[in-house]
């Protein structure tokens, strides 16, 4: 840990806040992506089951 001097709180909170925002963004992106992928697979399976021509 480097010596941050009297500005330790500011530097750490800037890094912390950035980390939180980026993590939320990445997590939301991946979570949505997974969900849509799973739902799409489900829908495609259903359509194949019914014998749609090009589902």
């Amino acid at each position: 840990m480097p010596d941050l001097g009297k500005y330790a709180a500011e530097v750490l909170s800037a890094y912390g806040a950035t980390c939180v925002v980026l993590c939320v963004l990445v997590a939301a992106t991946l979570w949505q992506g997974r969900k849509v992928r799973a739902e799409l697979a489900q829908v495609e399976k259903n359509q194949d089951g019914k014998g749609a021509q090009d589902g």
Binding site: L25, V26, T29, G33, V36, R37, L40, V43, A52
Partner: peptide, 29 residues
């Protein structure tokens, strides 16, 4: 990171759009 996020999210949007189209067709059938 921006490129990766945008590519991934665009893929998600494409799949969402396709799902919408499939479901619309299902309703029509």
């Amino acid at each position: 990171l921006f490129l990766a996020l945008v590519l991934y999210r665009t893929g998600t949007e494409i799949r969402r759009r396709r799902m919408r189209a499939l479901m619309a067709r299902e309703v029509r059938h």
